[in-house]
Simulated scan of single mutants.
Amino acid sequence: MSRRKLPDSPLFSLDPPVPDFSFELSARRDGFWPVAGADEAGRGPLAGPVVAAAVILDPDAVPAGLNDSKLLRPDQREALFAEILATATVSIASSSATRIDTTDILKASLDAMRRAVHGLATAAGFVLVDGRDLPPGLSCHGKAIVKGDSRSVSIAAASIVAKVTRDRMMARADATFPAYGFALHAGYATERHRVAIDSHGPCSLHRMSFRPFRQV
């Protein structure tokens, strides 16, 4: 897969906006380096963990095609996942369905991101986080960026790592709980998943604090 030269600032284009390195370069100009991107996957599903990733990209080896994981095909995500792991510093953490139920999905997501950032082999000097909230307890400065996975290549890389990791976890869960079809929908509230819940009831991976289960 080819790699691209990162500009100091985004260029005007009629094409849809794509993530760039401008937030990272701004942090470096302010004296913060290295810069990590952090994102999570799996806030919305009815089952399974929420998975977070933190990624420090090598500015000289940024994979081409990084973008919000939701905008990529599964084969594109898999290819980029492999290249990110080969060229970047990566850390992954998760919060289980039980942890989600005992706190809430936002707190569980932010805690997973905090642990992912702190798990990096190279300590981040600054972290860019997708969303509106910075995880509490970070050991470095940071910035929350709304729609950051489509604006920062570091956050985009983290979104891909988190998404691919979670999808693989749910595919493995399918072997243990085959009645629910986790490999097909990764725990999201599809019609097939809801029918399976009606037929078999919830399993240990289901988030009992979510609406369909609150009265169970």
Rank of each mutant, 00 (worst) to 15 (best):
M1E: 14
S2A: 14
R3M: 13
K5N: 12
K5F: 13
L6N: 07
P10D: 04
L11P: 07
L11H: 13
L11G: 11
F12V: 11
S13Y: 05
L14M: 14
L14R: 13
P16F: 04
P16N: 05
P19G: 01
D20V: 04
S22A: 15
E24A: 06
L25A: 12
S26Q: 15
A27D: 04
R29W: 10
G31M: 06
W33R: 15
P34E: 09
A36F: 09
G37V: 08
A38H: 09
R43P: 02
R43I: 07
A47V: 12
V51Y: 01
V51E: 02
A54Q: 00
L57S: 01
V62D: 04
V62K: 06
L66M: 01
L66Q: 01
N67C: 05
D68F: 01
S69L: 04
K70L: 04
L71S: 14
L71V: 13
P74I: 04
D75I: 08
D75Y: 09
Q76R: 08
R77G: 03
R77D: 02
E78S: 11
E78V: 12
E78P: 06
F81A: 00
E83K: 04
A86N: 06
A86Y: 00
T89N: 12
S94W: 09
S96D: 07
S96I: 04
A97P: 02
A97F: 07
T98W: 11
D101L: 08
T102C: 12
T103Q: 07
T103L: 12
I105F: 00
L106V: 13
L106K: 08
L106H: 11
S109K: 08
A112W: 03
A112I: 11
M113K: 06
R115N: 11
R115W: 06
V117G: 00
A123P: 11
G125L: 05
G125A: 10
F126R: 00
R132D: 14
D133G: 07
P135E: 05
P135V: 02
P135N: 05
P136S: 10
G137E: 08
S139N: 13
S139Q: 13
S139P: 10
G142Q: 06
G142E: 06
I145P: 00
K147N: 10
G148Y: 03
D149K: 02
D149T: 05
S150I: 08
S150Q: 12
S150H: 08
S152G: 07
S154Y: 05
I155T: 04
I155E: 01
A156K: 00
A156G: 02
A157D: 00
S159F: 00
I160V: 11
I160F: 02
V161Q: 00
V164C: 03
T165M: 01
T165Q: 01
T165A: 03
R168D: 14
A171I: 15
A171D: 12
R172H: 14
A173L: 14
A173F: 07
D174W: 03
T176P: 06
F177S: 05
F177W: 14
F177D: 05
F182T: 04
A183P: 08
L184N: 15
H185S: 11
A186E: 11
G187Q: 08
Y188Q: 05
A189V: 08
E191K: 15
E191Q: 14
R192H: 15
H193Q: 12
R194G: 07
V195W: 10
A196S: 11
I197R: 02
I197F: 03
S199P: 05
H200P: 08
G201P: 05
G201A: 06
C203Y: 03
R207I: 07
R211H: 15
P212T: 07
Q215W: 13
V216W: 12
